[in-house]
Design a protein around this nucleic acid. Sequence first.
DNA 1: ACCTGAACACCGTTCAAGT
DNA 2: ACCTGAACACCGTTCAAGT
Lengths: 216, 216
Amino acid sequence: MATQSSTLVKPLGKQRILEAAIAYADEHGVEMLTMRKIADKLGCGVMSLYNHVANKEEMLVGMVDIVAGEIELPQVNDDWKGSLRASAANAHKVLLRHKWAPAQWSLRMPGPARIRYMDAILQVLTEAGLEPKLVYSGYHAVTMHIIGFTLQEIGYLQVLDADFDELANEFLKELSGDFPYMAEHVRAHLNEDCCGSDEFGFVLDLILEGLERIDH
Amino acid sequence: MATQSSTLVKPLGKQRILEAAIAYADEHGVEMLTMRKIADKLGCGVMSLYNHVANKEEMLVGMVDIVAGEIELPQVNDDWKGSLRASAANAHKVLLRHKWAPAQWSLRMPGPARIRYMDAILQVLTEAGLEPKLVYSGYHAVTMHIIGFTLQEIGYLQVLDADFDELANEFLKELSGDFPYMAEHVRAHLNEDCCGSDEFGFVLDLILEGLERIDH
DNA sequence: ACCTGAACACCGTTCAAGT
DNA sequence: ACCTGAACACCGTTCAAGT
């Protein structure tokens, strides 16, 4: 009855594969992502995937590029700092939806959406009138912050829910003796006041305002 | 002749395993690292490794911690910015020796050497007299920069030697049309002047001097 | 206490065959 | 043009057996 020609069977296609892969990685982490698992999820054989994707590496590149495409591009207006701040905050939100992405971001070839995104950031810095050297360094500083800060945050979140009990009990006590500053920092993390404040934005402003000041 | 009791056969031990694993990852990348490859390198059976290491995850944690131990701790003196700058520069150098490390750093449980390192950075910031909120944020900013910047740099280096021809030829030409700012940035990267300048230190100073200024 | 081979339940990917 | 099962060369890890 439900033959292959049935309209109920959606065609495969690269887009549908990447979306399934992203959904799986969002839920289970990228280290659990498997060609076979994606195939199962899509209800097809493993090898069918290879009609639309050269290999797993290309798939990961495609996945990262879709995430890059979800980020709102910074607007080109007279408030370059505000524009970058808004876009970075959005990127931060998107990356926290796809916790596997930051670790993949820097290490893989950029796809078209990511190149588009990089270009937009550079355009804002250039159009702001910053001198070339500051456009160059400012770009590195801003993108490093978006990926690096979020990666660190995700790492912290993962360590947290991996073993919160050991951390809060044995860990913090043993820490206090040998590493008092570390213990104090962990205590600050566990406090509500610190989590409430916009750490991501605060550090980004350190960078943006530093750039503006140097540029006279 | 060469029996098991021969003194020529070094005992295994966790340290020797981790060193072999690090040497292999330095040379071939962490994605090529395999329990079997380490065993081959050490001239023992795969399962012998499991007498000293619980599993691959614990091995990676141990590898990262050895790298953390190679970093010179920042000194506690009256020049907190200079002290952090020197330590960060050293960390940068160490991480470039172990290009697989930055991607592992944030995502895995910190070992004792890394905790010692984190504590030292926090101590310098605290002893500098910065207010608690700035110690908290400054720590995140500095560590994010060390790992994030280096990770981005390593990604760039890998993309570079992966296909430098495609990049310089087809890539840059196609880029110039749709993404002029990106093309300009790539051109700046390929110029000698930019690589000569200490980008890592420049962006770090943006952060350190920002912290000092806010602290009045 | 330390070592180890065989075996298990997986991987990504090639290949040859189907429609 | 698209799909697919069987097969291959690997993985990490368990287990039972050795010393």
